[in-house]
């Protein structure tokens, strides 16, 4: 109406743009919340039961990945070593690390297994074969797991509160880019790489 426009000219510039300013403030606030504040809230974070230094094992001890993460005889991937495997070297403390001592006291002596929280567990409907990628596809561990083997500490285990899927520590290496704070590993991570290698897979290749 003409009333509004004539009245508008009499107001101060600040008052005239108040609406716009409030809209922008709200928009920026909402975006900041959505992009910065909210994503971390989506994840619960749990520390691993005990810290582990990959770098010492790979470097000073001169071990390889497969020494602790081997294939079983039937071709399946054994995943994490058992306490018994650790005890092959760590029956008694080798160094003077308090962490090592704690590990031997808490787990080796008591014969308990460490309840590691696994970063890279696949969802139930996905099939993943290490043999296919490592033995047949000749991929190195680092190509998917990144520099995990060279780290001195192991990061906390983060789980998406809704989907229950964890954030893969090596996800950035797998995806070939930094993962957004909202991201876990997705099917696209697999399919992008398969496509890059010229391998178009039927659904059943990975889904079960």
């Amino acid at each position: 109406m003409s009333t509004a426009s004539t009245r508008g000219t009499r107001r101060s510039p600040l008052a005239r743009h108040l609406g716009t300013l409030m809209f922008l403030a709200g928009l920026i606030g909402a975006l900041a919340f959505g992009w910065i504040v909210f994503p971390p809230l989506m994840y619960s974070s749990t520390e691993q039961p005990i810290q582990f230094n990959h770098k010492i094992h790979m470097g000073e001890a001169g071990m390889a990945c497969a020494d602790c993460h081997p294939f079983r005889d039937d071709g399946t991937f054994a995943g994490l070593p058992t306490t018994a495997q650790c005890a092959e070297c760590h029956e008694e403390p080798i160094g003077d690390s308090p962490l090592e001592k704690a590990f031997i006291d808490e787990y080796v002596r008591k014969g308990r297994e460490v309840e590691w929280l696994v970063y890279s567990r696949q969802p139930m409907n996905a099939y993943f074969s290490h043999v296919a990628h490592v033995t047949v596809g000749k991929l190195t561990c680092e190509e998917c797991h990144g520099d995990h083997g060279a780290t001195e500490t192991i990061p906390p285990y983060q789980v998406n509160r809704i989907s229950g899927y964890s954030r893969a520590v090596g996800g950035a290496a797998t995806a070939g880019r930094a993962l957004l704070p909202t991201e876990v590993m997705r099917m696209d991570t697999c399919s992008d790489c398969h496509e890059k290698h010229g391998r178009r897979s039927p659904c059943l290749e990975c889904h079960k």
Binding site: S129, A132, K208
Partner: peptide, 28 residues
């Protein structure tokens, strides 16, 4: 093999998961 949720169709896949297990062993 995964379990299926309510509300989806399913059918025989010729036990395709058995093929995956067999292929894994053979590849190894």
């Amino acid at each position: 093999i995964s379990t299926r949720s309510r509300g989806v169709a399913e059918k025989c896949n010729f036990c395709h998961h058995r093929r995956q297990v067999a292929r894994e062993r053979a590849a190894h």
